[in-house]
């Protein structure tokens, strides 16, 4: 069972819920928590496990072999992303624009654009009791998160057995990195807050998840703030509200210092309990 914790709007509590839920479930279950918000991975601040492995992640980028190249210029014409450009008697490659589709490399009749691995980030793994923690972290300056998120997904596949509950902390928004995480999941939990921003971004996230055909539910965080528009929307759309966590300075303060409020704050403990019960129900 793979559960993606996503949100639309940033800062609604994805990491708070992912980390509290993962550690709480790990009391009687094998759990794998994967931080797939590779641009800004924060779950590690809350998990104090033993470091087990670090793996450099690469993706393949064409490299120009000037000895073989006859400067026919077809690669430039083939590349739909303007990542390969002929300038005077040189072929220039722009790695941030390249999608690693291999077209220029495999269609080059002189075999002058071999694909070579190029570093994009790191995957790390640690363990804390029943909990395995995996983090993807993109190198600063890399533009494309999706290839790294794919690699994290493959890594999870290689280490998690069928009985492991996998919790995937997703990036905010609704563009390609989120689609990649949600696409890998069996169920999606959308975390929102009861404000106009929370509602607007939830609606976009719901559209995204529906487009991918994934079953989903909602957690309303800071539920005592703002207005009732999010709850009304969920009712009208028949979306299940799995838990509602009240606004709490105590929870905010525990989070701010890198702590887990489940077990320390009664509201958080109760609502995480509801999420656990729900996951058992759908597993």
């Amino acid at each position: 069972m793979k559960i993606a914790i996503a949100s639309g709007k940033g800062g609604t509590g994805k990491t708070t819920i992912s980390t509290n839920l993962a550690l709480s479930m790990a009391s009687d279950h094998r759990v794998l928590l994967a931080d797939m918000d590779v641009e800004e991975p924060d779950s590690a601040l809350f998990i104090k496990g033993n470091h087990l492995e670090e793996r450099i992640v690469t993706r393949d980028i064409p490299v120009w072999d000037s000895d073989r190249c006859t400067l026919c210029g077809e690669c430039q014409e083939i590349c739909n992303f303007n990542a390969v450009v002929r300038i005077a008697s040189q072929i220039m490659i722009f790695p941030n624009l390249c999608h690693s589709c291999y077209a220029c490399s495999e269609l080059c009749r002189d075999e002058a654009l071999p694909m070579k691995p190029s570093r994009i980030g790191v995957i790390t793994r640690s363990e804390q009791g029943n909990l395995t923690f995996v983090e993807g972290r993109i190198d600063i300056g890399q533009e494309q998160a999706v290839p790294l998120i794919k690699s994290v997904g493959e890594y999870i596949e290689s280490i998690a057995d069928k009985d492991t509950v996998v919790i995937m902390d997703s990036p905010p928004g609704s563009s390609c990195p989120v689609m990649e995480v949600v696409g890998q999941s069996d169920f999606v939990i959308l975390v929102t807050e009861p404000t106009p921003f929370g509602l607007n971004d939830l609606q976009i996230a719901v559209e995204t998840v529906r487009k991918l055909g994934k079953p989903f539910g909602v957690i309303i965080n800071r539920s005592t703030l703002g207005n009732s528009a999010v709850a009304d929307y969920c009712r009208a759309e028949r979306i299940r509200v799995i838990a509602s966590i009240p606004n709490s300075l105590n929870i905010a303060r525990i989070y701010s210092a890198g702590g887990l409020s489940c077990g320390m704050d009664p509201d958080m403990s109760r609502e995480i309990g509801k999420v656990k019960a729900f996951i058992k129900l759908i597993s």
Binding site: G10, G11, E39, I138, P171, P172, G173
Partner: peptide
Amino acid sequence: SPGIGCPVISSLSGASYVVLVTE
């Protein structure tokens, strides 16, 4: 946008000043 990926890099191109909002 949040993050450090392509939309952020794109919004930085040609910028004259960045206001960082943190907590």
